[in-house]
Amino acid sequence: MQDLELWTLDELCDHAFDIFEELASENLSAEDYALYQQHYESRGYADLAIPGEDWVEMMMQDLEPELHYEAQIGLTGENGAPDMVLARILLSREKHESLCHAQWRGQ
């Protein structure tokens, strides 16, 4: 792992947001996309997490916790409501690996 060129976690969040912004209008319902557009400045978030077993099953390969992260992008809840996760994006920290898979809300 020493020879790999890695994204920092902040860069990985920015990268995930870039992917989300590029693909959201095509993959979210019109209602969810409009809601995101209306509230992203005040309630938008991206969190990084270790990929769960559902990703391992979907990818049919083991994922390395030091290299692979799930970015959850969505809107924070209001008045105690739960957060709305709009997309889960599986990414690699390795800058030259093209791994990128997304699961979108409602799909």
Rank of each mutant, 00 (worst) to 15 (best):
S92K: 06
T76S: 13
I50G: 09
V56T: 10
M58I: 05
A87W: 01
Q38N: 11
E5P: 02
L67A: 06
D10K: 06
S29K: 07
L86F: 02
H96R: 08
A34W: 00
E53V: 11
L9R: 13
I19M: 09
D32R: 07
M59K: 06
E26N: 15
A46Q: 04
D14R: 14
I73D: 00
E26I: 07
E78S: 10
L23F: 03
L23N: 13
A24W: 01
S42K: 08
G52R: 08
G106L: 02
Q107I: 08
I19C: 09
T76I: 09
E22H: 09
L9V: 02
E57P: 00
T8R: 09
L12P: 01
L6M: 03
T8G: 08
H68V: 05
I50Y: 03
D54G: 07
F17I: 07
A34S: 08
M59H: 00
R93P: 00
A46S: 14
A71I: 05
E31W: 02
S29F: 04
S25W: 00
M60P: 00
D47M: 04
W55C: 11
E57G: 02
A30P: 00
I73V: 09
A46F: 00
A16D: 08
M58R: 14
L28Q: 06
E21C: 10
F17A: 05
E64F: 07
S92I: 04
A87G: 00
T8F: 09
S98F: 10
D32N: 12
A49T: 12
L63R: 03
L90V: 04
M84L: 15
Q103E: 12
E78K: 10
Q103H: 08
A87I: 04
E41T: 15
I19D: 10
N27K: 06
E94W: 04
G77Y: 07
G80N: 10
Q61V: 05
Q2K: 15
A16F: 06
D62G: 15
E57Q: 11
C13W: 00
A71Q: 01
A81T: 08
S98L: 14
A102F: 04
H96T: 10
A30N: 09
G106R: 00
P51Y: 03
V85H: 03
G74D: 01
V56I: 15
E26Q: 15
D62A: 14
E64I: 10
E41H: 12
G80V: 11
I89W: 00
A87Q: 01
P82C: 10
D83S: 13
S25T: 06
Y36H: 11
R93T: 02
H101S: 14
Q72R: 14
L63C: 09
Y33W: 14
S98N: 14
Y69C: 14
N79S: 15
V56C: 08
M1C: 06
L91K: 01
T76D: 11
E57M: 07
L67F: 08
L99P: 02
Y40I: 13
T8K: 13
H96Y: 06
D62Q: 14
L63Q: 06
D14L: 13
L86S: 02
L9P: 03
S98K: 14
E22W: 05
N79F: 13
S98C: 09
E64D: 15
S25I: 09
D10E: 13
E22N: 11
